[in-house]
Computed example of a mutant assay.
Amino acid sequence: MSYLAGKIVLAVTAGAPNNGKGESTTAPVKKARVRGEWYPYVSAQAFRRWLRDTMAASGVTPSPTERVGKAQGKAQKAHTAADPITYVDDDLFGYMKAGAKTDKGTTLRDSPFMVGTFMAVEPVQPTTDFGVMARGVDEPVLHSHEFYSADLAAPFLLDLPRVGTFTLPVANGAGRANYLSEQQALQAAAAMQVGATPVEFRGQQAVRLPLEIRRERVAVLLEALADLTGGAKKAIHYGDRTPVLVALVAMAGGVNPLGFVVDGAEDGTGLEVRADVLREELRAWDGEWETPVRIGWRPGYRQIMRKQFEADLGDLADSGQVVVDHPRPMLRELAEEIRSGRHDAWFDDPER
Score class of each variant (00 low, 15 high):
residue 7 K to V: 09
residue 7 K to Q: 11
residue 8 I to A: 02
residue 11 A to P: 01
residue 12 V to N: 04
residue 15 G to F: 11
residue 24 S to T: 14
residue 30 K to M: 07
residue 43 S to H: 08
residue 46 A to E: 12
residue 47 F to I: 07
residue 63 S to A: 11
residue 64 P to T: 10
residue 64 P to S: 13
residue 68 V to W: 06
residue 74 K to M: 11
residue 80 T to G: 12
residue 88 V to S: 06
residue 89 D to P: 08
residue 89 D to S: 07
residue 104 K to T: 11
residue 114 M to C: 09
residue 117 T to H: 05
residue 119 M to E: 11
residue 122 E to N: 04
residue 123 P to F: 06
residue 128 T to K: 14
residue 132 V to L: 14
residue 140 P to Y: 09
residue 142 L to R: 14
residue 142 L to Q: 14
residue 143 H to S: 09
residue 151 D to C: 09
residue 158 L to Y: 03
residue 159 D to F: 03
residue 169 P to D: 03
residue 172 N to L: 06
residue 189 A to I: 10
residue 189 A to P: 12
residue 190 A to R: 12
residue 198 P to W: 00
residue 204 Q to S: 06
residue 206 A to E: 00
residue 211 L to G: 11
residue 216 E to H: 12
residue 216 E to Y: 07
residue 231 G to Q: 04
residue 234 K to F: 08
residue 235 A to Y: 13
residue 237 H to M: 14
residue 237 H to E: 14
residue 246 V to R: 01
residue 253 G to C: 08
residue 265 A to K: 14
residue 270 G to P: 03
residue 278 L to D: 00
residue 281 E to L: 04
residue 283 R to E: 07
residue 285 W to N: 01
residue 289 W to I: 01
residue 292 P to S: 06
residue 294 R to M: 03
residue 294 R to C: 01
residue 297 W to A: 02
residue 300 G to L: 13
residue 310 E to N: 03
residue 317 A to I: 15
residue 321 Q to G: 15
residue 322 V to I: 05
residue 325 D to I: 08
residue 325 D to P: 07
residue 327 P to Q: 12
residue 331 L to H: 02
residue 337 E to G: 04
residue 338 I to M: 10
